[in-house]
Amino acid sequence: MTFLVMMKAKLTTNIDKERVNLRKSIIWISSVSLAIVLGVSLGFVYNSNNDTHVEDNNTLTAPITNNLSEEFWNVDLIVKGKVIQEEATFQKDTGVDTKIPSKMEVTPATIEVDEVIYGNEPNKTITYLQHGNSNETAKPKHVQKNDEVILILTRTTDGQYWSYNFDDGIWYVKNGKVKSNTSEKYLVDYKDKDAKDFIKEIRKAAKNKKKNENYKQ
């Protein structure tokens, strides 16, 4: 009987010791984790208070513009429509005589035109060109079949169309609202706004399109 009591007491002591050790480990891991979180957070807070860094991998220089009409200086057509299908990707020569040939991948999409918001396009469908292919993460993101879109476009010499300026010209219509990945200062405020209001504003801007006075006409 005494032996059993002693064994029980010893077992209890061992369990208590393990509990204490476990508690110490938890406190230790928590402290280090907290230190890392605190350090990283302070680093970012310090940065945001003193300097802001936005990852920018572009090499493009955009022109000076003072309003949406100047932003649209190279817009030829604005349509509201539906994506019928994406066509096969092809390689396009840039037409510039670089020492190392520079080709680019182009993936066309056929758009059924519901409404011409600005410009002149007699056909019921247009070919909308997109950079890259569908097998990789293309940027700007490619449109998908059945997407309802508003496209702000520039015409090519053979009557096809590109977005007038990458993400800025690609707008999706969902539940009557417009969505885009644009970061263009005169367009960014229209994100998630009513599609009808957006159409009204961009039509007005396109009708009054002009180059900024700092540029040759």
């Binding site: 493009l60 955009a62 190392i100 520079s102 015409r155 090519t156 590109w162 007038y164």
Partner: peptide
Amino acid sequence: QWNDNGWGSGEAWAQGFSGT
């Protein structure tokens, strides 16, 4: 040529090459 390439409304851009 700029429009046919879909290079947007910018003034200029730069392209680097590594090898070919």
